[in-house]
């Protein structure tokens, strides 16, 4: 217990000295504030951006809202379609044989690669982004629920079959629950991928959103806004992951993922 407190104190000291050092380096001009704004300046900018539309035409909350909305819609559809597809591929052999080769074709293409095609189809509105994010979360959702079901312990299946369970009962009462942790791992990968692809899509072409904000701020040379944007992207990314972990703890009982 005592040792633990010691390390916590070291952590706090380390964090504070990191921020102080950053502040010092920036304010003393060792690295110009044009390259590295001081933390205090970033905080000011953050407050300023909360209500001000400069330099990119929208306030920070609107950018955040736009990004979150796009990411979560795409993620939602990716999971809702990907998980059942993965489960069916794992459970029905013919399904597997039909879809697997196709799936193997699109699997290795990074979601960012889809951005230009989606923009060509849907323009630079919300649809193009949602569809890129859909792909980004669809692929890991399929892969993980597929392998989750495939890993259903044969023993579990035999046990339930000797109790006279039908194929369908085995799927719903044994296979899917025991694949739960794997499916959640897939959801975590999917969410991470969604957020990354969203930022990429917004950087490449959009009119709103956090990616757009940092790209525009870069073009006009407002490095403080870029910094704030990057940090906000990080914070919301982490927050969504936390939310998902919370959901997992609520939903998946028993087997923890390794």
């Amino acid at each position: 217990m005592k040792e633990k407190t010691k390390y916590i104190i070291i952590s706090i000291v380390s964090l504070i000295s990191f921020i102080l050092l950053w502040d010092l380096v920036s304010k003393s001009g060792i690295i110009s504030a044009k390259k590295l704004p001081a933390p205090s300046k970033l905080f000011e900018t953050f407050i300023y951006k909360l209500g001000n539309k400069n330099p990119d035409g929208n306030t920070l909350p609107i950018h955040i809202w736009t990004s979150l909305k796009e990411a979560l819609i795409g993620f939602f559809f990716g999971i809702v379609i990907g998980v059942p597809l993965g489960i069916s591929m794992a459970w029905f052999k013919k399904f597997d044989k039909f879809f697997s080769p196709l799936f193997d074709l699109i699997k290795p293409i990074p979601p960012v690669g889809w951005v230009p095609i989606m923009i060509t189809f849907f323009g630079i509105g919300i649809m193009s982004k949602v569809s890129v994010i859909f792909i980004a979360s669809f692929i890991p959702a399929v892969i993980n629920s597929y392998s989750g079901i495939k890993q259903t312990r044969e023993v579990h299946k035999w046990v339930s079959q000797t109790f006279g369970a039908s194929n369908r009962q085995v799927l719903f009462t044994i296979a899917i629950p025991s694949a739960g942790p794997m499916i959640f791992t897939g959801a975590r990968v999917a969410l991470n991928g969604s957020w990354v692809s969203l930022v990429a899509a917004e950087l490449i072409a959009s009119t709103k959103g956090l990616g757009y904000m940092i790209q525009t701020a870069r073009l006009v040379g407002r490095i403080d806004v870029v910094f704030v944007g990057v940090l906000v992207i990080g914070v919301f990314g982490a927050a969504m992951m936390e939310g998902l972990s919370f959901l997992e703890r609520k939903l998946v009982k028993g087997g923890r993922r390794s």
Binding site: I8, S11, L15, Q215, G221, V226, G229, G234, A238
Partner: peptide, 25 residues
């Protein structure tokens, strides 16, 4: 771990791609 981890936690959740504008600047 005690020294590096808290600082690492600041950059960890930032996607590599989000560094593009900063890197250019």
């Amino acid at each position: 771990h005690a020294i590096i981890y808290p600082i690492f936690c600041i950059i960890r959740p930032i996607p590599g791609i989000a560094w593009i504008p900063l890197a250019i600047l």
